[in-house]
Design a binder for these strands. Structure first.
Lengths: 133, 133
DNA sequence: GAAATCATGCAAATTACGAAACAAGCTGAT
DNA sequence: ATCAGCTTGTTTCGTAATTTGCATGATTTC
């Protein structure tokens, strides 16, 4: 019942980018050094964030990573789900058919409610607020 | 970011016990059959619940499993934490020292808040309500 | 001692984590 | 243009931890 370290790293990387302004290109190894993230691991994470459309990467000399939209429009949920996939407290939240009891299950409701609360919380937290507030 | 299947099984097992009354001794294999849980896996889960003080087990013929207190005094949180250990959305929630940035981290606050919300939600849900409501 | 039942140790499968090697793309100097 | 050097993207691999499940052992009642 935890987010993975990858997701934690991703959050920190996006925080770092947010703190340095949207237009500023940052090299991955700089982020890695500053945030104490294994470089080769971060490369993979950045790549996933890029696929998810959270950051924009440019290869080559003078290349680097930038946010693909303003920090105020990127939520914690965006970043975590880009890396870990959909957040689900229990399997049945996303797909009730995996449970032999399906919807006829009182606990199912509780999981769904807690899930919604958590999504709302993370979805409401944007990186602009995180770095400035 | 999910509870384990063990925890899910544990919840279902406690639900079953709650539905059948506190004094009624149930054999593990009956629970396993009814709730579609691998028998030998359930045995280990029951054992952990016993150590955590949620259920009381008795060996031997005519042995079985009973709730160790009324269903109304057992929360979802009790059962999940008995199996999966403390719920933590991120490592730093329980131990800020694992993070090189410690408390000076805006995200830390968010994790802690979300964590508290989740704990409250699960802690407020008791099994009496689950089986009767 | 036999049957029923929980307890515990062992093995397979999955996932997380990190490292390394290689490929590809951009820039700027020559 | 071409080449050299910098930077990300992709793939592969190995290790370690966790999860899941099974088989066997230990304990109690009759």
């Amino acid at each position: 019942m935890q987010i993975t370290k990858q997701a934690d790293y991703a959050v920190r990387a996006v925080m770092y980018l947010s703190a340095h302004g949207r237009r500023h290109r940052m090299a991955t190894n700089k982020i890695a050094m500053d945030q104490k993230i294994p470089l080769s691991f971060l490369a993979k994470i950045i790549s996933q964030l890029s696929i998810a459309g959270v950051v924009h990467t440019m290869r080559g000399a003078k290349g680097g990573v930038t946010l693909s939209r303003p920090a105020s429009e990127i939520s914690l949920l965006d970043v975590v789900e880009a890396i870990d996939g959909p957040i689900t407290l229990n399997e049945c939240v996303l797909d009730a058919s995996v449970c032999p009891f399906g919807e006829n299950c009182k606990v199912h409701e509780v999981w769904c409610e807690a899930h919604t609360d958590l999504m709302n919380k993370l979805g409401a937290t944007d990186f602009q607020t995180l770095v400035s507030g």
